[in-house]
Design a binder for these strands. Structure first.
Lengths: 243, 243
DNA sequence: AAGTGGTCTAGACCACTAT
DNA sequence: TAGTGGTCTAGACCACTTC
């Protein structure tokens, strides 16, 4: 059935993805683009668009002169580092029912590193939001978000404390978070962090130290996240350059 | 000047990238696609191809109905996690002169985890290659590669020990490494690792535990890498899904 | 209403890989 | 040499944002 929205390209992509996941292609070889175009009744351009998106996701590889092939090992990955946006979504993809605990919502002076990355004066205040994400009631991710008070006040946020930060900023502050730049930092959890994540003090963890930018590339939020390494391990695809 | 190779698309991309880096666009706004196409004497499709690649790199964002914009904060990143292929290249991008120390090339029985990820029998042998990457003579990255001996023997590799592993596999073994799947693991360096990286025992580090796959999606190499966190910090762009 | 990026077509030719 | 993916064109129309 041909309709608009989702686009033809997205429909073709979904069709191919389903056949890929159900092992519908012999020996992991995807038919020639011209054949797919004829079979699906769309132009080769549309097929190429859809294949390009699947390649971008790592699901397939294309080799000029040779063909298009399914990358089976890639399909088995659960938590892909490149695809994180909401932590609740991550935990859901991971196969569990996520929930959120709001531990702290309060206003205070920005510390030096936060003031630096958010371009604030030394005496500015920030709203600090601390949350714990759980999967099936086990704590997995601890996050601390810091947002300048000239963007939002604690009274405003407390009415929406269960809302993800990026969603709140978009709907209540007119600041669409467009991307985060994240540093990956190894840490040993201190007493308080370890307590909240339910592990021993000194446990090794990966943390993200990151800044969120809005649609105008202005820094809006400074976030730090700590992960239970034993419950959630992030994976990454490293590909040849120019792919 | 219009020539083939590099493709028109790549030439347009390079042209735009140069103007982006030299702040050649007012207020970070890139001209409309139709205008660029007319100015450069190419079709709008070619311009869109080039813009799509820049968007994929994170350098720009496109918003339907609104325009195309430069993501200035992204341009300042040195070591991007998504773009790692060769560690020598990483160190070079990082602004230093890289060099390599081959610490060990020897054959031995595969340990359990290596046998598991490479699909080997319990009694198989692997070639173990341990290397240290330095920038301006400071050790920064320590890697251990394990390759099944039915693919390569130590005698073969020793003649090429300065060659990157992925290059050796391609040129000498006919196995093109197409991608790695990497786990990100926080560790405390043991005595030997710390000594080689020139830090104290117990220092925190990020490590990659990864498997390299060839053009037929067969596992070919099991690698573990340790990074001097104080000298090289990987950064990551987290974007909204569907971008 | 005007202007922007997004989708889609049909067709031509090129570059590379297999055999 | 046949078959594959890669590049490129010209043109039409749609969806969304901005004014």
């Amino acid at each position: 059935m041909i309709t608009r929205n989702p686009s033809l390209t997205e429909q073709v992509k979904a069709n191919l993805k389903e056949r890929i996941l159900n092992d519908g292609f012999e020996e992991g070889r995807i038919p020639p683009e011209a054949e797919l175009a004829a079979e699906l009744g769309v132009s080769r351009t549309t097929v190429r668009d859809a294949l390009g998106r699947l390649e971008h996701e790592g699901a397939i590889s294309r080799r000029q002169g040779s063909g298009t092939f399914v990358n089976k090992p890639v399909l088995q990955i659960k938590s892909r580092l490149e695809e994180i946006w909401s932590y609740e979504q991550v935990l859901e993809d991971h196969g569990y029912t996520p929930s959120v605990d709001v531990l702290r919502v309060e206003t205070g002076p920005a510390d030096n590193s936060t003031a630096a990355v958010l371009d604030l004066d030394g005496d500015s205040n920030v709203l600090v939001i601390e949350k714990l994400f759980l999967e099936d009631d086990r704590p997995v991710v601890l996050t601390v978000n810091r947002i300048p008070t000239d963007i939002v006040t604690d009274a405003e946020y407390e009415r929406h404390s269960a809302t993800p930060v990026y969603e709140f900023l978009e709907e209540q502050c007119g600041r669409t978070l467009s991307y985060y730049l994240s540093d990956i930092v190894p840490v040993q959890l201190d007493d308080e962090q370890a307590g909240r994540l339910g592990v021993e003090q000194g446990t090794l963890a990966v943390s993200f130290d990151e800044v969120g930018y809005d649609q105008d590339n202005a820094p809006v939020v400074h976030a730090t996240s700590y992960f239970r390494d034993d419950l959630l391990r992030f994976r990454l695809i490293r590909r040849r350059p120019g792919t």
